[in-house]
Measured scan of single mutants.
Amino acid sequence: GTEIELESKNGQREHYTATSEDEARKIIEKAVRRGIKRIELRGASEQLIRDMQEIAKQIGLQYRTDGSL
Rank of each mutant, 00 (worst) to 15 (best):
S68Y: 11
L61N: 05
E5Y: 14
I59W: 15
L41T: 06
Q12W: 10
V32T: 04
S8T: 14
A18W: 05
K57R: 12
G35K: 03
Y63D: 15
S20N: 10
K30I: 12
I55T: 02
H15M: 11
E7S: 06
A44W: 03
G11D: 03
I27A: 01
E21K: 02
Q53I: 15
I49D: 06
E23V: 10
S8V: 10
G60N: 11
K30V: 13
R34C: 13
E7M: 07
E54Q: 11
E7F: 07
A24M: 06
R50A: 08
R33Y: 06
V32R: 02
E29A: 14
M52F: 05
Q12M: 12
I59A: 15
E54N: 07
Q12E: 14
S20D: 09
K30T: 12
E21Q: 05
Y16L: 08
Q62N: 05
G43N: 11
D51I: 12
Q62F: 07
Y16T: 02
R25Q: 03
R25E: 01
A24C: 06
T19M: 13
E3C: 13
A44S: 03
S8A: 12
Y16M: 06
L48E: 00
L6H: 01
E14P: 01
K57V: 07
K37N: 10
S20Y: 04
Y63M: 15
G43L: 02
R13V: 13
M52P: 00
R25P: 00
L41Y: 01
E40D: 09
I36R: 00
R13D: 04
D66N: 05
D51V: 14
Q12C: 14
R42T: 07
D66F: 00
K57E: 09
R34L: 14
I39C: 03
N10D: 14
H15G: 03
R25M: 07
S20M: 02
E14F: 06
D22H: 06
R50I: 10
I36L: 08
K30R: 11
A44H: 03
Q12K: 10
T17N: 08
Y63A: 15
H15L: 15
I49T: 06
V32P: 00
I36C: 08
D51M: 14
R33T: 12
R13I: 14
E29M: 10
E5K: 12
K57W: 07
D66P: 02
I55H: 03
Y63T: 15
Q62Y: 08
S68N: 07
E14I: 09
Q47D: 09
L6K: 01
Q12I: 10
K37T: 10
R34K: 13
R34Y: 03
E14H: 09
E46C: 14
L61D: 12
I36Q: 01
R13T: 11
Y16P: 01
Q53V: 13
R42Q: 07
S45D: 04
E14V: 06
D51G: 04
E46I: 08
M52T: 09
G67Y: 01
I55Q: 02
L48W: 02
L6A: 03
K9C: 15
E14R: 06
E7C: 11
G67T: 09
G11S: 03
I28V: 08
E23I: 05
T19H: 15
Q47I: 07
I55W: 13
T2L: 09
R42Y: 07
D22P: 07
K30S: 13
K37C: 14
R42D: 03
G67S: 06
Q47G: 11
I59C: 15
K37L: 11
R50N: 08
L6G: 02
G11M: 02
S20E: 05
D51H: 14
S45L: 03
L61I: 14
Q53E: 13
K30F: 09
A56S: 04
R38T: 10
R50Q: 12
R42A: 07
Q58P: 01
S45N: 03
G67F: 02
G1V: 13
Q62K: 09
E21H: 06
A31P: 00
N10G: 09
R25I: 09
E3Y: 14
I59Q: 14
S68W: 12
I59F: 15
L61Y: 05
K26H: 09
D66E: 06
K37E: 08
T17I: 12
G11I: 01
I4E: 00
S45H: 02
A56I: 09
I4M: 03
R64L: 15
E21N: 07
A24E: 01
D66Q: 04
E21M: 08
I28Y: 01
E14G: 03
T65E: 15
Q12T: 12
T19L: 14
Q62R: 08
I39R: 00
A31I: 09
G35N: 10
S68I: 12
T65M: 04
I59H: 15
E5H: 13
T19I: 13
K9V: 11
T2D: 01
E46Q: 10
L41V: 13
H15T: 13
A56G: 04
E21V: 08
A56Y: 04
R64F: 15
A56V: 06
G11Y: 00
L41H: 01
A44L: 02
M52C: 06
I55F: 11
Q62C: 15
D51K: 08
T2I: 11
S68G: 10
D22L: 07
S20V: 03
K30N: 12
K30D: 13
R25T: 02
I49H: 09
D22T: 09
L6M: 12
K26G: 09
K9M: 13
R50M: 10
I36T: 04
L61V: 08
S8C: 14
Q47P: 04
N10T: 12
T19E: 11
L69E: 07
T65L: 04
H15K: 12
Y16R: 04
M52V: 15
K37V: 14
E54Y: 05
T65G: 11
I36N: 01
I27N: 00
I36Y: 05
T19F: 12
G60C: 15
A18P: 11
K9A: 13
E23D: 09
I4V: 05
G43S: 05
K9P: 11
